[in-house]
Each structure stands twice: as structure tokens, then as C-alpha cells.
């Protein structure tokens, strides 16, 4: 297969980019990839997703309605490590785990482009994971509690409230 960019060298990188659920295929050689700075997940050295990420963000800025959102995102910065969103978009790398929190507003579209999804469904770390399991249980019970209050089932509501308190206590330990 020939590289779709230069048409000369054989294509050695083959990947699909998912943008809002739409798939685009790429078949390019490594030197064209390096030139274009294309998104190549899982490759080390040489070239990377850096310039593409900034490309993506420019793209967003170019869309009329999204211009404001993109400008806002550029103003974000991580209070823990000091990285700004525009640095992140140039480097294509987060500076620390808190960047995820400070850039949160801008990340959903990015993750949807790269992964076609925005949230994790895989493995949970055992210790931190236990907290998450508690939290999810409590959230569910709270919803049930709301429901039972609306339906004036106060006995059930009282039981649910006790359960929630018990879980919250366990979680705190």
C-alpha cells in the first residue's frame, strides 16, 4: 500500500481517527506522519500526537459557534503543576493528574475524538476502587430516597436514609 500523502513510500502506519463517531482512515509513511504530526497512538519517539492535538483545537476555534469555547479553554490552567491549556494542546501531554480536573470542561470533545468515548469502564484499583463502589451505591440510594419521598413512602425513605448513613460511615473509615 502506497502512502496516501506522498504516494511514493510504502504506507507503514495505518490508523483510524474517530471524530464524533465518524471514522477516517489513514495510511501514511513514517516521514509524512512526522511532517504532518499526525495522531499516532502507541508510538514512541520521533513524532507524536502533539501537533495534531493543537490542530484539533484550532479546528474547533475555526468553527464559528465553538470559537468562544476554544478561547475559554485556552485560558484554563492547572493550579497544581501550572500547565496552561494552550501548553497542553501544543505538547499533547498533561503535566500532572490534576490537569484532568482543571481542563475538565475541554476534555470531553477531545476524548470523544480520540477514543469515541469519555468515561472509563475498565479495571478499578482495589483501594480507591472500594471508595468508588461506595460512592456509586450511595448515589443510587439517594435517588431511591428522593423517589420514595415524592411517592410519600416515608417508611421506605427512613430505611433508605439509615442505609445511606451506614454506608457513609463505612466509607469514612
Amino acid at each position: 500500500m502506497q502512502c496516501q500523502e506522498c504516494g511514493v513510500r510504502p504506507a507503514t502506519l495505518h490508523f483510524t481517527k474517530i471524530v464524533n463517531g465518524e471514522k477516517t482512515e489513514f495510511h501514511i509513511c513514517e516521514s509524512c506522519a512526522r511532517e504532518k504530526g499526525e495522531l499516532i497512538p502507541g508510538t514512541a519517539g520521533g513524532f507524536s500526537i502533539h501537533s495534531l492535538l493543537s490542530g484539533l483545537l484550532d479546528l474547533e476555534g475555526a468553527g464559528k459557534g465553538k470559537a468562544a469555547a476554544a478561547t475559554n479553554a485556552q485560558g484554563l490552567h492547572c493550579e497544581k503543576c501550572g500547565m496552561t491549556y494552550s501548553q497542553f494542546s501544543k505538547l499533547g501531554r498533561f503535566g500532572c493528574s490534576s490537569c484532568y480536573k482543571y481542563f475538565d470542561n475541554a476534555l470531553d470533545p477531545l476524548f470523544r475524538r480520540v477514543h469515541g468515548s469519555t468515561s472509563h469502564v475498565g479495571k478499578l484499583p482495589k483501594r480507591a476502587g472500594a471508595q468508588i463502589v461506595f460512592k456509586r451505591q450511595i448515589d443510587e440510594l439517594k435517588q431511591e430516597l428522593q423517589q420514595s419521598i415524592v411517592e410519600e413512602e416515608f417508611e421506605t425513605a427512613a430505611q433508605l436514609r439509615d442505609q445511606i448513613r451506614k454506608l457513609e460511615k463505612e466509607m469514612a473509615q
Binding site: 495522531l39 497512538p41 502507541g42 507524536s48 500526537i49 492535538l53 499533547g92 501531554r93 498533561f94 493528574s97 484532568y100 480536573k101 476534555l107 477531545l110 476524548f111 480520540v114 477514543h115 469519555t118 468515561s119 472509563h120 475498565g122 479495571k123 478499578l124 484499583p125 482495589k126 483501594r127 480507591a128 476502587g129 468508588i132 460512592k135
Partner: peptide
């Protein structure tokens, strides 16, 4: 699991395991 027992990982309820590059976030698995 052995490492997770001994150190605190950067993990987020919604995003999963947090990685330096956004192409690895979630499972961190290649």
C-alpha cells in the same frame, strides 16, 4: 495489583487511570 497495593495511583472515577498522554487514559492498556 502488586504495585497498587504499595503506592497510590492517579485514578479518577470518570476518566480511569490518568496518564500523561490523552491517548492512553482510561485503562492505560496497549
Amino acid at each position: 495489583d502488586i504495585f497498587e497495593d504499595a503506592v497510590n495511583y492517579a485514578f479518577d472515577d470518570r476518566r480511569g487511570y490518568l496518564t500523561s498522554c490523552p491517548t492512553n487514559v482510561g485503562t492505560g492498556l496497549r
